[in-house]
Amino acid sequence: MKYRLFGIISILLLLAWQTLDGLIEGDWGRLEGGLGNLSVFFSESMWPPNWSVIEARPYPVCESEIEFFCSVGYLGMMETIKIAFVATILGFIGALFFSSLAARNLVPLYVAIPVRILLSAIRSLPSLIWAILFVIVIGFGPLSGVLAMTFYTVGYLGKLQYETFEGMANDSLEASRAMGLPRSSILLNVVIPENSNHLLSQLMFMFEYNVRHGTVIGIVGAGGIGYYISTYLKFLQYEKVFALLILIFVVVVIIDLLSMMVRSFVNDEGDVRRPTWLNVVLSEK
């Protein structure tokens, strides 16, 4: 078994290597000096991070006693978080509706297939393209960002959710069907509670994903921290970009810790020990 796994991984690596070689047409020389270039770019242009992004902006005048609350970093990050929060909630609810109509163990195939095609269509446009579309339709600002992320969330979470539903144990579904519970009741009272752990995990992952992608869609004018990143990139202020990227990293780590805390409420006891708020921040001795 161990040798077979080793063999499969070796073959896959070889295939990947061959494919890459084909893609770059064997021109491996381009990698030469790449590491050096990266090192020069990082040390001369990005390092040290410029932390002025977490100081109050000169205009408008800061009315808060804490400077940080008037900074580009805070304001941009908060707008990104708000966009991601609204889009994740709306997208999650929309995805639940569609995924319940796409899971083969919940609906007949003639319903599941068209809904799956619809979800694939929504998913095939990346959030960036959705953002460009909504910026064209609605104009610059957070509303375009919210709509772009909501659509992408529906497509992406919808697939994760229907695959989760299809993987659930059949016995609870069969018992509730035989009892004569209506489809809506089975979804709300059996399917969703039974998959709550996975659904919460996916919800938190999507929120984190949307926060990260807030940077990308901001670049096309859909609001959030990406707007500032885009501006600093234009003016070659890479130290400020790097500081903002660190800020995003910190937020993503915090969301991950929150996710661990939230999911511990629906985990099997003993599988994962429920963390306390203290040991989310400080490791246990």
Binding site: L173, E174, A175, A178
Partner: peptide, 18 residues
């Protein structure tokens, strides 16, 4: 049709997380 039949499968059919 609704509720006239009760069924307890071998694996009980309970919603474990509820």
């Amino acid at each position: 049709r609704r509720g006239g039949l009760g069924y307890i499968p071998q694996r009980l059919g309970l919603v474990r997380h509820a």
